[in-house]
């Protein structure tokens, strides 16, 4: 792709870089324990937890780096970090 004069870059284009490959640990979601507080989605540094219409969450494993903040902060222990089998 040719350089735009001045080097201007299209918005949101880091999405081509799938940081999911960085993970060692992966979040395991126990929906039955989830109290739908939305905290995990709010905190995720990598925009990898989205709330559904029912306010449960889905994880985007293309980008999740496995930091574990969601599991550490979940008030109802609904997320567990497990070693990912590759």
């Amino acid at each position: 792709m040719k350089i735009i004069i001045g080097g201007a870059v299209e918005p949101g284009s880091t999405r081509v870089n799938k940081t999911g490959g960085w993970r060692n640990f992966k979040p395991l979601y126990h929906q039955d324990k989830c109290i739908k507080c939305g905290l995990c989605s709010l905190l995720c540094p990598d925009c990898s937890i989205e709330e559904t219409e029912e306010k449960y969450v889905v994880f985007d494993f293309d980008f999740c780096k496995g930091c574990g903040i969601c599991a550490n902060e979940c008030p109802s222990d609904a997320i567990e970090m497990v070693l990912e089998e590759k």
Partner: peptide, 9 residues
């Protein structure tokens, strides 16, 4: 947008 190079966490 995700895909940035920030450390995990």
């Amino acid at each position: 947008a995700p895909g940035h190079r920030g450390c995990a966490g």
